[in-house]
Write a protein that binds this DNA or RNA. Structure first.
Lengths: 320, 320
DNA sequence: CTGAAAGCGCTAACAG
DNA sequence: CTGTTAGCGCTTTCAG
């Protein structure tokens, strides 16, 4: 290709990278030749030289989960806008894999976006050392050069509690997220707010998926709650489905609320009351934390209460 | 690090890559030193030398779409199992971006997995030339070294037609997918099957999302169909939601069927009759097409009819 | 403005 | 078994 245009490789490089002093005539010749041969520089060589791959890494517990899929979408789209690539890894909700994937990707990428709800703090710190730049989702770490974007889930739970209390509910079942997940603890903080003080909260082990929700309903019902707050909307959809099977009506017999406002939540029957957070915004914010000018501090994202028809005053007599 | 263990860089490389003749004593010393310093080889340098990045690229129209998210999950997980990384790009359903992303990633990766329903065949051919290895999802291209994994959607439509016909339906609205999408044409092939011969099909422009489905319902109803077949389950969920708003009961007044069997489809009310295809399997199959031993030919994936409660015999009198 | 040459970090080939 | 050396493809000095 350098041969084709009869110039040195250095000149080709100058033309293609742009903004270098090259005579217009030569520049054109090079561009034509490049087009002809379909020449594109080898990115590995560029990376080696520059010390930057123009790539960000995204590590999440489950790539199939729409919540993370949307975050990924937000990041990838921002990244693409500045000629960056996006490397991904799913970790199957396994702390060991969270660590391995993060460490592995860290070597490749300019910046790492990590959602690792279960990784231990020391290991997280190791990752922070290994990565050029690290941004955490829904988790914080005291460490220079580590930024965080966290959703203030305790405010969400608080808002849901206030909403349910104002409807007259007293006994609330909380379907917990994955054990030891940082963001579940955030949610639980909401139950210690003044808005929740008149409520009795029954904690039920659950998880983060539709199937988890479905499975946890029966245990939750043993507490005779008049409302359920679910770890997220997926769980809530599973709950609605199981309640329907049991012949209980929502919100007639029992109210159900989710968290996150998943796309489907506006279309369930009944429509799901939830705490809406914008995952696209989350992705965008996370991306911004990679740019040098932005502080490494923690960004707090607030959501808003979305009241649909899955919540209503409790029945006068408890069901059954 | 080589200094720390008092050996040459070549020896370090031999130890770390494994399977090379090194005395156990030295090997241990190197491993300890590497551990100490936290040394990890520079992947860009390795890539440059090897000519392979151990990376696959995945290009899909919408990273936020659960359908593609699951395919991505399947591929990423298979890739990780063999120490490969996964690079992604979403293309916002834009043919131009489909092309640019594909060409761009092709330079980086060992293999490219491409779902580009709208890209023109000549451009697709260009991508095939640029990529070391190319696998297409739901699309075929006559070209050596290009494999495909396609879902036989015409069989799905055929099965749905047979199912609806056997229930006594005659007037069916089909809510079309994105214009010019290859996989929509596949579906439409199903309407030319014998099973559909007794049916009158009304084609309604729609799209691939929940919101598209919601919006297309009113036009579809002008044909007074007794059943609707939707491009995919997302559309169907949007349809269910709009029909509910209109006060029409499913399946009492009208039957609705989807395609794909999205995770949520078992949990809608009523449960959605659909044609189930395994996206995980799709991802896995796609991955297998990257391994040299596997032929580049097209793999056909079949789904199966899943009958839930959104389909039933038509009402005796048409609604309204 | 352009070419020659060094070197990014690594591993394969070649000596020893 | 181990060290030395060349070179992967590019960009960036440094000369001219």
């Amino acid at each position: 290709m350098a041969r084709l245009a009869e110039v040195s490789t250095a000149t080709v490089s100058r033309v293609l990278s742009g903004g270098k002093p090259v005579s217009p005539e030569v520049a054109d010749r090079v561009r034509v030749a490049a087009q002809d041969v379909g020449y594109r520089p080898n990115p590995a060589a560029q990376t080696l030289l520059r010390g930057s791959s123009r790539t960000v890494g995204v590590v999440v517990p489950d790539l199939g989960n729409p919540y993370f899929a949307e975050i990924l979408k937000g990041v990838a789209s921002e990244a693409a806008a500045t000629e960056h690539h996006t490397l991904v890894a799913g970790t199957d909700e396994d702390p060991e894999q969270e660590y391995r994937s993060a460490i592995e990707l860290a070597r490749w990428v300019d910046g790492l976006l990590l959602c690792a709800p279960r990784m231990s703090t020391p290991r997280l710190r190791e990752v922070a050392e290994a990565a050029r730049r690290l941004v955490l989702i829904n988790r914080v770490l005291r460490h220079s050069a580590v930024g965080s974007v966290v959703v203030d889930y305790h405010l969400g739970v608080r808002a849901l509690c206030e909403h349910l209390a104002s409807l007259g509910h007293k006994r609330i079942a909380y379907l917990q997220g994955p054990t030891a997940a940082w963001s579940d603890q955030q949610r639980q903080r909401g139950f210690r707010s003044p808005e929740a003080s008149g409520l009795t909260i029954f904690r039920v082990p659950c998880g983060s998926t539709l199937v988890d929700g479905q499975a946890a309903v029966d245990e939750a019902l043993t507490y005779k709650p008049t409302a359920m707050i679910c770890f997220n909307d997926h769980v809530a959809v599973g709950v609605l489905s199981r309640l329907r099977e049991l012949g209980l009506s929502v919100p007639g017999d029992i109210s159900v609320a989710g968290i996150d406002n998943a796309p489907m939540s506006a279309h369930t029957d009944p429509g799901l009351t939830t705490y809406a957070v914008s995952t696209i915004e989350l992705g965008r914010q996370a991306w911004e934390r990679f740019t040098p000018r932005v502080t490494t501090a923690t960004t707090h994202l607030q959501g808003e209460l979305v009241i649909r028809s899955s919540t209503a005053p409790p029945p006068h007599r408890p069901h059954r």
